[in-house]
């Protein structure tokens, strides 16, 4: 069980994290999701021991590891740009963590070789052991990086935007593959991403972060369907934000939660209509304002024409109140 307690971190004058509290259960696959500058990578690195917090504790199974160096924490870390050792072969990379162990903890050469090869099989790269990182594709390199991190039998696997440097197609394949790997190994994993699709697809629970604070922790379903704050509602999935007439409230409605009705709805002037996957995406302007509205209509329905006017009604929505500081949600 990993517990992060009241972690605060500043870089010079820049406050990166404010009093972060988080519990991670054994075997969980947690996503830290947020825009750049949200502090998600900083939090990950503090858990790893690559950064040190200014205040607060990091506890592994009740034990405070805050004073321990990264090498002593037993974490496996996978970097966005792989960080493979270019002058070593693939198998030497994977075996590295075992080779640098102190003599008394080190397995024999033969055992190390076997472990490394087993891991290469696990990541489906058997046969490529003698190659150099420079000779592999991006997806292959990331799998080597993963095998290398797993070789030291970590208690915790940390991944920093692991697919960020890869092509879209490779990213999708590796995502699925990582999910399967986690199911098989059951290793507690935390990964950082700014791609909400990735977070929603892979994680057991998602931690949404913004400006150094946790906005919401929940399952992907909870985050998407029941956003706790305006930021979460806006950042995860697409949202239309409509100020209510009383001036202190804002309505958040997802494009697919808008119904087009014959009568008794708000009028919208249609500007543009195009196919988006299995739906019609209608872009329009709310009558009597500049407010842009995005509506998703199932493709089997007839789409309106640009220039037409349609009437809409929210099927589901969330109301957020302007907070005490006057910040519009």
């Amino acid at each position: 069980m990993i517990r992060v307690q009241n972690i605060t971190k500043r870089f010079g004058n820049f406050p990166a994290l404010h009093g972060i509290d988080l519990d991670i259960q054994p075997g969980e696959f947690i996503a830290l999701l947020g825009p750049s500058g949200s502090g998600k990578t900083t939090l990950l690195r503090i858990i790893a021991g690559l950064e040190f917090q200014d205040a607060g504790q990091v506890l592994f199974n009740g034990e405070d590891v805050s004073e321990r160096s990264v090498g002593e924490r037993g974490v496996g870390f996978v970097f966005q740009h792989y960080a493979l050792f270019r002058h070593m072969t693939v198998v030497e990379n994977v075996a590295f963590g075992l080779n640098v162990r102190k003599r008394k903890d080190r397995p024999t050469k033969a055992e190390i070789k076997t472990s490394a090869e087993e891991l290469l099989r696990l990541v489906q790269l058997e046969g490529l052991g003698k190659r150099f990182p420079g000779q592999l594709s991006g997806g292959q390199r990331q799998r080597v990086a993963l095998a290398r991190a797993l070789a030291i039998e970590p208690k915790l696997l940390l991944l920093d935007e692991p697919f960020g440097a890869l092509d879209a197609k490779v990213r999708k394949d590796l995502r699925r593959w990582l999910r399967d790997l986690h199911k098989r190994m059951g290793l507690t994993s935390v990964f950082v991403t700014h791609d909400q699709e990735e977070a929603l697809e892979l994680a057991d629970r998602v931690v949404v972060m913004d400006h150094g604070r946790i906005e919401q922790v929940g399952t992907p379903e909870q985050i998407y369907m029941e956003p706790a704050t305006p930021f979460v509602s806006y950042f995860v999935g697409e949202t239309n934000r409509l100020p209510a007439s009383n001036g202190t409230e804002t309505l958040h409605i997802r494009p697919h939660d808008i119904e087009i009705v014959e009568t008794d709805g708000k009028p919208v002037l249609v500007d543009n209509v195009f196919r988006k996957g299995g739906v019609w995406r209608i872009e329009g302007t709310l009558a009597g304002s500049d407010q842009i509205i995005e509506i998703d209509l199932p493709a089997d329905r007839a789409a309106p024409e640009p220039g037409q006017s349609v009437h809409i009604r929210p099927a589901r929505s969330k109301i957020f109140t302007t907070n005490a500081n006057g910040v519009q949600p």
Partner: peptide, 13 residues
Amino acid sequence: KEVEEASATLGAS
């Protein structure tokens, strides 16, 4: 520094 950090996470002095 990524490569050095990687080495440190793997337990190297």
